[in-house]
Amino acid sequence: MPHTSDNLAVPIIVGPTAVGKSEVALEVAERLGAEIVSADSRQVYRYMDIGTAKPSIEDRRRVPHHMIDLVDPDVVYNAGDYGRGAAAAIEQVRAAGRVPLVVGGSGLYIRALLEGFCAGPRGDIELRERLRQEARTGGTQRLHERLAEVDAGAAVRINPNDEQRIIRALEVYELTGRRLSDLQQAGGEVQGLIAVTVGLRRERSDLYRVIAERVEAMVCHGLVDEVRGLLDRGYRPDLNSMRALGYREMIRHLTGELTLEEAAKLLIKNTKALSRRQMTWFRAMSDVEWIDIEREEDLSSRADRVVASFESRGFHPAGGPDKFA
């Protein structure tokens, strides 16, 4: 692994939701003289703080964070936008003589940063709403069948129940006349970054325990009020941002479909499922060194192991390995 004087290597911390990435990243960032570049697909939205477990103002004062609070919840934001924005943030951090530390649970966003992403068109709100209406009236399966007719490659890769990705593929085709699968094969502009990646993981039962505790804390700290406030601002329940974990469940509570207890239990269930999907994605990534988080291990020891992993593979901040001292 190249030394960072090469100006290309970037340290990355990945792992499933609730594994403890954020708290470890703060410790690691202080040791590396780093600023954190978030790779979270939900924290880009303003006003969505509790449900996305966004770092607190105090944490952001302690260590500067980038790629957070970028757009309002009704703005269409995708992996291509993230890849370009994160690359610019990394250059900004380096220009200030600091180390960029990428941290997050979105494998798609990290891939967009490291490998580039297809230069598809920006979303068209009216077209997307028309396609959503078609899904509501005719079913997602029918939309998937339509996608198979115009872009068989995308249809094979996209689950027939994944309404959001089906609509995006159809949207790209209708706006450009080109198939999303062709654009993805052509790829986007490769950022030329070399990843030094550490993955954090917990034993599954322990992770599930933390997920349940986290959901309870979110509810106690005002998640329902946060969601109510977003609806009061006029943000529709069918927006991509409002369909995120935590928000869709609490919307169902606020509309009277679920009790608060039922909504919280559903959120725990859905978060567990997300953690499994995230781990499937991250296991497919190459060159990830995994660190198992022990329940009784203190935060400093976890950070020590992450830094040691970066160091063992040749990553040192500018100035050399003594920065780790």
Rank of each mutant, 00 (worst) to 15 (best):
V219A: 08
V198G: 03
Y235K: 05
R214C: 02
R201A: 06
R204P: 07
I251N: 03
R248D: 06
T176F: 02
V227D: 03
Q191F: 00
V210D: 12
A217K: 03
H253T: 09
V227M: 08
M242H: 07
Y208Q: 15
R243Y: 00
R236Y: 11
E171M: 10
R201S: 06
V190E: 12
Q191R: 15
V224M: 11
G199L: 09
Q184C: 13
L231R: 15
E174I: 13
L175K: 06
R228C: 09
L231F: 10
I194A: 03
E249W: 08
T255S: 11
E216S: 14
T176N: 08
R201T: 10
R236F: 11
R228Y: 08
Y247L: 15
L230R: 02
L200F: 06
M250G: 01
Y235I: 06
L254V: 13
Y173L: 11
A217N: 06
Y173P: 03
N240E: 14
D182T: 09
G222S: 07
V224D: 07
I211M: 05
E189C: 00
G188W: 01
E189A: 12
L175E: 07
R252N: 01
Q185I: 12
Y208F: 15
R202D: 01
E171D: 13
G177R: 05
V227Q: 04
E189L: 13
A186Y: 06
R209Y: 10
A212W: 02
R179K: 14
E171Q: 14
L231Q: 10
G234F: 05
L175M: 12
P237M: 03
M250D: 02
P237I: 03
V224R: 14
T197V: 10
R179H: 01
N240S: 15
L180F: 04
L193N: 04
G188Q: 02
V210L: 14
C220R: 11
V219S: 00
H221P: 00
G222N: 05
R214V: 01
L230H: 02
L175V: 11
M250V: 12
V190L: 09
D225F: 10
D206N: 07
Q185A: 14
S181H: 04
V172G: 05
E189I: 15
G187M: 10
M242S: 08
G188D: 03
L254R: 10
S181K: 04
G246D: 06
I194Y: 12
R214I: 02
D232R: 13
D225K: 14
R236D: 14
L170H: 04
G199F: 06
G234Q: 08
L223E: 06
H221Y: 14
Q184H: 07
Y247W: 13
L200S: 03
